[in-house]
Computed example of a mutant assay.
Amino acid sequence: MHYAEKELLIFKAFKDILYSDSDITKITVSEIAKKAGIGKGTVYEYFESKEEIIAKSLVYNFYEEVNIFSSKIDENLTFKENCYILFDFLTNRVIAISPYFQLLSSNLKIKELCNYLKNDSILDNLKNDLDYVTSKIISIGITEGIIKKNDNKDYQKFVIRSACSGIANSICENKSTDLEICKSYAYEFIKRALK
């Protein structure tokens, strides 16, 4: 997906503000424009509202992070090592995006979020990239004999996504669960379900 330079400045400015000590529920378009070094009117040339900035910034920043993460999956590492790279990425992302969801839940309805994103091809690219990474990890597991070669590919992806969902749920429940234990459970779940 190609973005104009000013859109990228807006995404970066919004992310910087979101992770600063400011009250995220009071972020304004003026504040975003100032941080981006552009005029407020320029922001409205690219986005209809603050809510659209929030929605598209969330997806864009996640997409960029997925690209960085996918380059870390390495066929020279073991299946387990690659699973833990996936789990670490997931853990960091769930923790990092919680301010976005806090802001979205206070200012934006899910239906509005979907409306802002439904025609944005970045979501398709994001899904394709995540599927590619998952397939790459599965391929490594098959090579090592950890995963059965003849299992349905969609089932294999489902198992890995389910393990990731378990980690994300543990983080979101905000219990004092040891994340390393959650990761080991997720890995054992994958091994048992795909053996």
Rank of each mutant, 00 (worst) to 15 (best):
171 I>M: 12
116 Y>V: 12
106 S>G: 14
37 G>T: 06
32 I>F: 00
48 E>K: 07
130 L>Y: 03
147 I>K: 05
55 A>Y: 05
52 E>I: 10
81 E>R: 13
27 I>W: 00
19 Y>D: 12
89 F>H: 10
157 K>H: 11
164 C>N: 10
52 E>L: 08
149 K>I: 09
141 G>M: 01
48 E>F: 10
78 T>G: 09
59 V>T: 08
42 T>W: 00
168 A>P: 09
31 E>I: 00
26 K>G: 12
127 K>Y: 13
12 K>I: 01
66 V>T: 03
4 A>K: 09
54 I>F: 01
43 V>G: 00
32 I>L: 01
52 E>N: 05
27 I>T: 05
57 S>F: 02
55 A>N: 08
113 L>T: 14
82 N>W: 06
74 D>W: 12
95 I>Y: 04
69 F>H: 08
190 I>N: 11
13 A>L: 02
77 L>M: 08
100 Y>C: 11
50 K>Y: 01
7 E>W: 01
113 L>E: 13
89 F>S: 11
104 L>I: 15
114 C>L: 15
135 S>F: 03
23 D>Y: 01
87 F>R: 08
129 D>Y: 02
107 N>D: 04
188 E>R: 06
108 L>Y: 08
5 E>W: 04
22 S>F: 05
108 L>S: 05
188 E>T: 03
178 D>L: 06
85 I>N: 11
71 S>E: 15
112 E>M: 08
123 L>K: 13
82 N>T: 15
159 V>N: 14
38 I>G: 00
164 C>R: 09
59 V>M: 07
29 V>D: 00
183 K>D: 04
148 K>T: 11
104 L>E: 14
150 N>G: 02
160 I>D: 08
117 L>D: 07
180 E>D: 13
187 Y>E: 06
117 L>N: 09
63 Y>G: 02
89 F>V: 04
143 T>V: 06
181 I>M: 12
165 S>L: 04
77 L>G: 03
59 V>P: 07
